[in-house]
C-alpha cells in the first residue's frame, strides 16, 4: 500500500536524521585553540601582561652535536607595543613577549624573551625582532624576521641565534610557522656561525 501516511512517516524519518545532525553540530565543543591570543601576540597587542611562563621541555635528542629539532611555540605578551599609523600602515614597535613551547632538544629549552616590531598592511604584517633564550647551560641570542597574516593568527618567522655559555661557537636556526598558536617550530643546531648578512 502506498498510503500518504507512510510517505509522511518516511519524510519524518528523514527530517529527524537531519535534525539530529543539526543538534550534534550545535552541541559540538568549540576548538580550544587561541586565535585571539595569537592575534594579540603578533598583530595588535591588547592583552594584559601575563605571568612568567614555565617552559615544558620535550627533549628527545641526546642534546649533543649538530641536530635537526622540532617542537611547538607559543607567545604571551609581557609589554605592549607602541602603535603609530603612517598612511595605511600600522607600525607596532617594541612589543615584548615570553616565548614558550616544547622542543626536542634540551639545549633550546628554557626561558625565552622576544621583542617584536611589525608593519601591518591590512591583515598581513611584516615582522622582525630579537630573541634571547636562556637555560642553566647557556644562552641563545639573535634576530629574526618573518610575516604574519589572518590578522596575526598565522605566521612564518625565522631567526639565527648565536650560542653563549656552553653553547659558545654554536648557532641555532629556527623556523616557527602555522595557522594558529601553538605554532610548529623546527630548526637546526650546528657548530658554526650564522650566514653573513
Amino acid at each position: 500500500m502506498r498510503s500518504p501516511a507512510r510517505w509522511i512517516l518516511v519524510l519524518a524519518l528523514v527530517s529527524l536524521a537531519a535534525a539530529a545532525c543539526g543538534a550534534a553540530a550545535t552541541t559540538s565543543p568549540a576548538p580550544s585553540g587561541a586565535p585571539t591570543q595569537a592575534a594579540t601576540a603578533t598583530a595588535a597587542p591588547t592583552a594584559a601582561a601575563t605571568a612568567r611562563p614555565t617552559p615544558t621541555p620535550m627533549a628527545t635528542t641526546d642534546g649533543v652535536g649538530p641536530e635537526y629539532v622540532t617542537g611547538t611555540s607559543s607567545l604571551s605578551v609581557m609589554k605592549e607595543a607602541t602603535q603609530t599609523i603612517v598612511g595605511n600602515v600600522v607600525q607596532y614597535r617594541g612589543q615584548e613577549m615570553w616565548g614558550t613551547g616544547e622542543m626536542s632538544d634540551p639545549r633550546i629549552a628554557g626561558t625565552q624573551v622576544i621583542t617584536l616590531n611589525g608593519d601591518m598592511y591590512g591583515d598581513v604584517m611584516s615582522e622582525w625582532g630579537t630573541t634571547r633564550l636562556e637555560n642553566a647551560q647557556g644562552t641563545w641570542e639573535g634576530t629574526w624576521t618573518g610575516a604574519s597574516w589572518n590578522d596575526g593568527t598565522a605566521t612564518s618567522v625565522t631567526g639565527w641565534l648565536v650560542g653563549g655559555g656552553d653553547y659558545a661557537g654554536w648557532t641555532y636556526y629556527f623556523h616557527v610557522y602555522g595557522a594558529s598558536m601553538p605554532w610548529t617550530a623546527e630548526g637546526i643546531i650546528f657548530e658554526g656561525s650564522p650566514p653573513a648578512p
Binding site: 652535536g65 641536530e67 635537526y68 637546526i188 643546531i189 650546528f190 658554526g192 650564522p194 650566514p195 653573513a196
Partner: peptide, 8 residues
C-alpha cells in the same frame, strides 16, 4: 654540519 646545513 653532519646531517644538517645552513644555506644562504
Amino acid at each position: 654540519h653532519g646531517r644538517v646545513g645552513s644555506e644562504w
